[in-house]
Amino acid sequence: MHRRQLLTGIGAAAGLTVLGTACGSGDGVPAVEAEQSLFVQAASLEFLSGPDRWLAFGIRDLENTPLDDADVQVYLRTIATAPDQTAEVVAGPLAASFAPATETGQGIYYLQTTIEEPGLYDVVATVGDDHGVASIQVVDPSNSRVAVPGEAAISARTATTEDDLGVFAVCTQDPPCGMHEMSLDEALETGRPVAMMFATPEFCQTAVCGPSVSTLDAIRGDGDWGDTIFVHSEIFAEAPVGAEAPTTPLVPAVEAWGLPSEPWFFTIGGDGVIAGRLDGPMPEPILRSMLEGLTA
């Protein structure tokens, strides 16, 4: 794989046309055809069906200004894909928490919920009388494009301070993070838990991907995570340049994991089995929760 499928920008979902004119259920949910007054960005490649799934998203007003720390209520609504179908609310209202922006990132709203069935859904975020919609794809874990919890982690070499593997940069964060002491393949052989971050701080291309590496590195330094090994891998083997970025070669670990976007974060148990995964926005509270689950 030599192409990067970058996350879509704010407002892309707002232009999506959906069929059907009724919500089906759920008081307070704007109708499908109601004009949107907010942009909602759920910038993840895919969401998994099942219990306790994280949903993180950004919100901006029509002037593209981030909407921070608002009272946000969220509904999940099926998308009618045929004229004889009706959009139905399957969850909500769900209160979203807010994680403030750090460094260059955007503040992120997040919540945890159960999504029983795969399919296309609207994430309807309401703030008083205003609302916005982002469409997401929910897939069964067995059909995911990327490794899922319950599967064995893929052993692959990652660049370290001792062996850069010939890539242009071990870490593009300034200053470099402290998560390059051990390669992923070596970490998996230790029998210890592993926190694995795939991200490129310098070349992150969406507002909500934010400073995922620096956030994780700070968490690493201020908590008691037992003998967990923290590993960071850059995405590109060569420095991306302008329009050539989509064809820039990837580092071996990203190739091995088959990652079609970035950033991605995985927690891996001492048995080498993936315990959790997250892509797109990386709010600090979610990363902490995943690490707590790994070290409990």
Results as ranks from 00 to 15, higher is better:
Arg4Met: 11
Ala12Arg: 09
Gly15Asn: 11
Leu19Pro: 03
Ser25Asp: 06
Pro30Val: 15
Val32Leu: 10
Gln36Ala: 14
Phe39Leu: 11
Phe57Leu: 11
Ile59Tyr: 15
Asp61His: 06
Asn64Ser: 05
Ala70Ser: 08
Asp84Glu: 04
Pro93Trp: 01
Ser97His: 02
Phe98Glu: 01
Ala99Ile: 00
Ala99Asn: 02
Gly105Met: 07
Val123Gly: 08
Asp129Gly: 09
Val133Met: 13
Ala134Ser: 14
Gln137Arg: 10
Val138Met: 05
Asp140Phe: 07
Asn143Pro: 00
Thr158Arg: 05
Thr160Trp: 08
Leu165Ile: 03
Leu165Gly: 13
Thr172Gly: 13
Pro175Ser: 11
Glu181Ala: 09
Asp185Gln: 04
Asp185His: 02
Thr190Arg: 11
Thr190Val: 06
Thr190Ser: 15
Met197Lys: 13
Phe198Lys: 12
Pro201Asp: 09
Gln205Trp: 04
Thr206Val: 00
Gly210Phe: 00
Ser212Val: 07
Thr215Ala: 15
Asp217Val: 14
Gly221His: 12
Asp224Thr: 12
Gly226Tyr: 13
His232Thr: 08
Glu234Gly: 04
Gly242Asp: 14
Thr247Ile: 12
Gly258Val: 15
Phe265Gly: 10
Gly272Arg: 00
Val273Phe: 09
Ala275Val: 14
Pro283Asn: 11
Pro285Met: 04
Ile286His: 06
Glu292Ala: 15
